[in-house]
């Protein structure tokens, strides 16, 4: 019994230590921003690897989610005779919530895990150590560009997701289920506010971008440099990212869309 308590204590202390390391790590990464700015090519290369290569999964998922929203929304709204409001429903759901959140989860799974594995593997093959010995700071040179690339890519991907989703909902609602074309867009335009909905969605996706990329990059950097260690780190990065995104989503939603 006592040993369980001891174990709990040890786990907590390890967790706190890890949290501390993660924060110091973040500060270290942030301090490398000037280096990135005058070597933009590194950032561009990473935006390709992290952002461009995620376009496919984001657009396809966005399309399906939008289409399902169209279907489900129509089904529910027709009970109240309010099918013409389908546009608002689809757009609001996507822009405020589903766009940022689902994109963040997809990003964590595709790009986040890849980042963790890549960095973990670099650690395991002593490339990071080698770089240190060559007087190049691996945190600024390798981690930095990847970190900023994630932050830059997330809002772009989330916007893509929302746009494709709205079009998907349009295709199903107006194209297949007979919702009026004009009503779909005009209701949407009337009710969706740029500052309240769109900007807040972008802010959310920025926050998620920071969180997911930070976790992915740190787990790789902190991983045990064996094949098992790297695989565990990769799993952890996806799982923790999911928790973090959903948790922050709640906090941000409460702050942004709470009562006036």
């Amino acid at each position: 019994m006592l040993r369980q308590v001891q174990k709990l204590g040890r786990t907590t202390l390890d967790g706190l230590q890890k949290l501390g390391r993660a924060n110091l790590f973040l500060l270290h990464v942030l301090s490398g921003l000037p280096d990135i700015l005058w070597r933009l090519w590194l950032l561009v290369a990473q935006v390709y690897s992290v952002g461009v290569l995620s376009i496919l999964i984001v657009t396809i998922s966005g399309m399906f989610v939008g289409m399902v929203l169209g279907l489900q929304g129509h089904y529910v709204l027709s009970e109240f005779g309010a099918e013409q409001s389908l546009g608002v429903m689809v757009a609001a759901s996507l822009v405020r919530e589903l766009g940022p959140v689902i994109t963040a989860l997809l990003f964590a799974g595709r790009a986040g895990s890849a980042l963790t594995a890549e960095i973990g593997l670099m650690k395991a093959t002593e490339q990071l150590s080698g770089m240190e010995m060559m007087a190049v700071d691996p945190v600024k040179r390798i981690i930095g560009p990847r970190f900023w690339a994630g932050i830059v890519s997330m809002p772009l991907l989330a916007s893509l997701f929302s746009m494709i989703g709205v079009l998907g909902g349009y295709f199903v609602g107006v194209g297949l289920l007979g919702v009026d074309d004009g009503a779909f867009w005009s209701q949407m335009r009337a009710k969706i506010d740029f500052e309240e909905d769109i900007l807040n969605g972008v802010i959310k996706s920025l926050v998620f971008g920071v969180v997911v990329t930070w976790i992915a990059v740190f787990e790789g950097y902190d991983s045990i440099p064996t094949s098992e260690g790297v695989s565990r780190a990769t799993t952890r990065s996806v799982v923790y990212s999911a928790f973090a995104v959903l948790g922050w989503d709640f906090v941000l939603t409460a702050l942004m869309f709470g009562e006036d």
Binding site: V44, V47, S153, L156, S159, M163, I192, F194, I198
Partner: peptide, 29 residues
Amino acid sequence: IEIWVGLFVGMGIIALFFLAMQVSNLSDL
């Protein structure tokens, strides 16, 4: 790579623009 990244950023901005103009009430404000 540069072309792809440029396209990506361009697409993202277009999407944002679309959302701003077509979906929200920005044009009316």
